Simulated scan of single mutants.
Amino acid sequence: MTTDITRRTLLRGTAAAAFALSAPRFALAQAPDFLTIGGGPSGGVFGIVGTAVANQLSAIFPATIIDVQPGGSGPNLLRVRDGKADLGITSANNALDAWNGRDPATPEAPVQNARGLMTIMQSAIQIWVDARSDIHSLEDLRGKQVSAGQPGQTSWLTFENLLAAAGMTIADIEADGGKLHPLSWSESHEALSNGQLDAVMWLSLWPHPTVLQNETVRPMRALSFDPAVLEKFVADHGAGFEPVTLPAGLFGGQEEPAQTLGTNTILFAGAEMSDETAYAIVKQLWENREELYTAHSLLRYMTPETVGQGMVVPVHPGARKYFEEQGITVSDSKLDA
């Protein structure tokens, strides 16, 4: 008889073995054979952070085969759900939608095994324009050349919902010669920097290095949204979002603060991961956070005040145990684990 060995059964097996062995051998025994991390596209923030996490974990799991896969907020949730990844990076709003059987999941296959490990960064809804542009609101995007990622991606769907909150549709953008272009992140920003696009919308970390790099060509500015539009967005589509103010000076052309909505970026694991492994992962990453900061400046958002907050999904018991030992407050989830 052949047994189908999956990553989940390996995690369960190593956890069971750990309990059976004496304390001096415990740390080595609990190490999983494999750890697959869902990151992001090569060169992107999620990819860089995923690699930095892998480098840290190789120090405590030297015999473990650690793999970082390109992915994204939605794909990472699906991979952990299906046992194809053990850890992933995602946005709290995506995790909540997937838990409830909405995009990126479906009602027939929700993602309800996601368990938060730590909040590492914050993303915000942002529309970037040349600071000298006459675009100051969603209404001003009518007839303009715009990118919001590609159909089906989180940013595209967020843009559709943002437009709906303002009483607009994609058809309004594409009136009078406008166009919503289905471009990748790199294509979008290249086109924005060379003037082929008037605006780029993304649910993105801030201040994103790519946007700062664009300022070598032209000063950048993020739009500020009407409070009534933001309120309607939250009421209709905004589970997992909260008000965020992008400060003046964030970008070279940002003379005034911009009002928008944000969501936390979290590192999460599957519920099948043992408490001991989750505890060891969080301990290693938190106690070596200064090294993580050097991997990407946006990781400096990870502080004692933020690291245990706003993960939306249930916090993994192993992570909760470590944070409580350190006196770090952990927020509770409203979801049933």
Rank of each mutant, 00 (worst) to 15 (best):
49 V>F: 03
58 S>C: 05
43 G>D: 12
39 G>D: 09
65 I>H: 13
88 G>W: 06
38 G>I: 02
57 L>E: 04
72 G>C: 10
71 G>N: 11
70 P>F: 11
85 A>V: 02
37 I>W: 02
63 A>F: 10
43 G>L: 09
30 Q>S: 14
55 N>G: 10
62 P>L: 10
48 I>L: 11
49 V>L: 11
86 D>V: 06
70 P>V: 12
36 T>Q: 10
62 P>N: 05
71 G>C: 12
37 I>P: 06
66 I>K: 05
78 L>F: 00
53 V>Y: 10
44 G>Y: 08
78 L>H: 00
82 D>F: 00
62 P>V: 04
60 I>V: 15
72 G>D: 11
40 G>E: 09
80 V>S: 04
67 D>T: 10
79 R>D: 10
74 G>P: 08
88 G>N: 03
40 G>K: 08
80 V>Q: 02
52 A>R: 02
67 D>Q: 15
61 F>K: 03
70 P>Q: 12
52 A>W: 00
33 D>A: 14
33 D>K: 12
57 L>Q: 05
66 I>Y: 03
79 R>W: 06
34 F>A: 09
32 P>E: 07
67 D>P: 01
71 G>D: 14
79 R>F: 05
41 P>C: 05
69 Q>W: 02
65 I>C: 07
81 R>E: 01
70 P>R: 06
89 I>Y: 09
76 N>W: 09
82 D>P: 00
41 P>N: 14
80 V>R: 08
65 I>P: 00
73 S>F: 08
31 A>K: 03
73 S>Y: 01
45 V>W: 06
64 T>P: 06
38 G>P: 12
76 N>H: 11
50 G>E: 03
82 D>I: 00
64 T>D: 10
61 F>A: 08
69 Q>N: 11
